[in-house]
Write a protein that binds this DNA or RNA. Structure first.
Lengths: 202, 202
DNA sequence: AGCTGACCATGACAGTTGTCATGGCGGGGC
DNA sequence: GCCCCGCCATGACAACTGTCATGGTCAGCT
């Protein structure tokens, strides 16, 4: 009775490295690999996967979206998000999408194997540091429009450009930006967009 | 006669994954691991390393600086930069620092092993796609000061704040920013900082 | 010595941005 | 029904930003 695992990561070296690492564990069997989220969702169904290790940043379908799809179609498969950055925003989105585990790539291999066993037993595994940071941040105070204008602000667009693409008046965009700046405690649209992005508010 | 390899990467899973992957090769022996650049430079000297796999983003001493130090003190050790992003700027800096190879984490494991063997034989190994992209981008047109102010602009600091931390006048900072905006072909400090960062000009 | 280029600075100007007061519109909750 | 909130809009104001002209210092090069 080995645990059937799928590794999904767009970087070949990381993907194969994780697979090689897990193959050292007697009770874990890496039966498939995927380089993008879409492929991962297919392989989960085909290979009756028990646990899926999922990177966040992937082409075609990102890890969060892929997790949501798997949670809907294959609830028997537990998804563990394995990500580079300890973004609390990713954590919230991942759990909302139905992920059963969340670890950063900085954790030692032994802990990853243990996490796989735990989620397979039905437990949840979340990096404790990240969980604490997530709690201290509170919930997203931004309205939909504010998120939208902040996303554009992130790319360095001017007010006029944002207003044009969103079919709004320049003044309205400025108002949304202003309130977003207040809510994030920033002094700039740039800093507002940065902190909002860090906290996963976008 | 096996090749003695050191793996330096701050993310434990990636580091151990690479080690596990390379241990499958008969002629390659991973004899040490480092979580930061400083430790890597020490281990290279202690373990008479043949080839060092080096990540770019690391605490204490980044991969580029560590490469430079190793190239000076242990010229017998070949350094291969293994990085996530195909930033052409990193490539140039790495080669200037004395790296003998440059591969992205998207390359398959077999190619990585082959790259290790090649640099051990004295050859250079550079991702061909990246080399081409690097040539098409041209050289960094930014002066030192312009890079500096752009780095601060990236975080959303105001002109006054940048001027204060750099012990300059606000007008001077504006001038540097303005010329940086011209050189990058942007319309904003934000867009200028973004494109400069993408091309590895910072 | 003369030239060039990076660097620093000042002052002036137009344009953009952040803030505020004010108001209209629509949906949800008490 | 009334109130609150998100959304959209306008106008005005102060502050900030990007550009330009000008001029100074200093190092390197011919």
């Amino acid at each position: 009775m080995t645990i059937r695992v799928l590794v999904a990561d767009d970087q070949a070296l990381v993907r194969q490295g994780l697979a090689a690492l897990l193959s050292l564990e007697a009770d874990i069997d890496v039966v498939a690999e995927a380089a993008d989220g879409l492929h991962a969702t297919q392989l989960v169904a085909e290979h009756s996967i028990d646990v899926c290790l999922m990177d966040v940043q992937m082409p075609h379908l990102d890890g969060i979206a892929a997790t949501k799809r798997i949670a809907e179609t294959n609830p028997n498969c537990a998804v563990i998000i394995v990500t580079t950055f300890g973004r609390t925003g990713y954590l919230k989105q991942a759990l909302a999408a139905g992920a059963r585990g969340f670890v950063v790539k900085d954790t030692p291999a032994a802990q990853l194997a243990e996490a796989i066993r735990k989620v397979h037993r039905g437990l949840r595994v979340v990096d404790p540091e990240l969980a604490a940071a997530s709690l201290s941040e509170g919930t997203n105070p931004l309205s939909d429009r504010e998120k939208e204008v902040l996303r554009h602000a992130l790319t360095g667009d001017t007010v006029a450009a944002i207003a044009h693409t969103l079919h709004l008046t320049a003044g309205t965009v400025r108002n949304h930006l202003s309130s977003a700046i207040q809510k994030t405690g920033a002094i700039n649209r740039v800093q507002a967009a940065r902190t909002a992005a860090e906290r996963g508010w976008l």
